[in-house]
C-alpha cells in the first residue's frame, strides 16, 4: 500500500492545508511529493474511452488501487479539507497526443471533491494536457502537470473540470488517477 508523506500528516500542516483550501476562490490545494511510498500497478491494460465532443482518452482501474479507499487517505482528506466525505469512484486516465476532455463532460454533476494524483513524467507545458476547473463567475483554475503531486478541488453543481487537449507533438502522456468523493 502506498504511504502518505509524513509531513502532510502533521497537525500544523493539516491545519495550514485547511486554511489554504477554504480560502481559495475555487477551493483547491496542491501537494507536491505527496507520497513517500508509491505502490503503483502500471501493468493493468487500459482501454480507449471516447465520447466524441466530450472526451477521448484511455482509462483503467486506478494506478494506486485500494489506496484511494483506505482509512488513512480518507482521514487525511477530511482533516485537510474540513469536509466529511464518502468515496465514490477512482479511475486511472491517460491522455496521449490528440486526446482531450471538455468542460461539459460532467454535466449534471452534484457537489464533489475531485482528487487528482499525477504520474506524468517529462512534460513540456507547451503540450497542453493541464487540468482546468471552472465555476460560474470565478476565474478558471489551471493545474499544470507535475509528477508526484496531489491536487484537491471542491466543485459545486454547475462547476466543471477537464483535461486540456494534448498536442500531437507531445512525446509523453498525461497519466493520472482521478478520484471522486461525495460530501456527506
Amino acid at each position: 500500500m502506498s504511504e502518505i508523506n509524513f509531513y502532510y500528516l502533521e497537525e500544523p500542516t493539516l491545519s495550514n492545508l485547511n486554511r489554504i483550501f477554504v480560502s481559495a476562490d475555487i477551493p483547491f490545494v496542491r501537494l507536491s511529493k505527496f507520497l513517500s511510498k508509491e505502490e503503483v500497478n502500471f501493468e493493468m491494460k487500459s482501454q480507449r474511452d471516447e465520447k466524441i465532443g466530450f472526451y477521448k482518452r484511455h482509462v483503467r482501474p486506478s494506478h494506486l488501487g485500494d489506496f484511494w479507499e483506505s482509512k488513512d487517505f480518507l482521514s487525511f482528506l477530511e482533516s485537510g479539507t474540513g469536509l466529511t466525505l464518502k468515496f465514490r469512484s477512482s479511475q486511472g486516465q491517460t491522455y496521449g497526443p490528440g486526446d482531450y476532455s471538455l468542460l461539459h463532460s460532467e454535466e449534471f454533476e452534484r457537489k464533489r471533491l475531485v482528487v487528482v494524483y499525477d504520474f506524468t513524467n517529462n512534460w513540456n507545458i507547451e503540450w497542453g494536457g493541464h487540468d482546468i476547473y471552472t465555476s460560474p463567475e470565478k476565474d478558471p483554475l489551471i493545474c499544470n502537470r507535475d509528477a508526484g503531486t496531489l491536487m484537491l478541488t471542491l466543485l459545486d453543481e454547475g462547476d466543471y473540470s477537464c483535461t486540456r487537449y494534448v498536442s500531437l507533438k507531445s512525446d509523453s502522456k498525461v497519466v493520472i488517477d482521478k478520484v471522486i468523493f461525495d460530501l456527506k
Partner: peptide, 16 residues
C-alpha cells in the same frame, strides 16, 4: 502542416 478539416463518423456508443 496540419490544419486539415477532419470529418468523423460518430457511432451510437459515442466513439468515432
Amino acid at each position: 502542416d496540419g490544419g486539415s478539416l477532419d470529418l468523423f463518423e460518430g457511432r451510437k456508443d459515442g466513439t468515432s
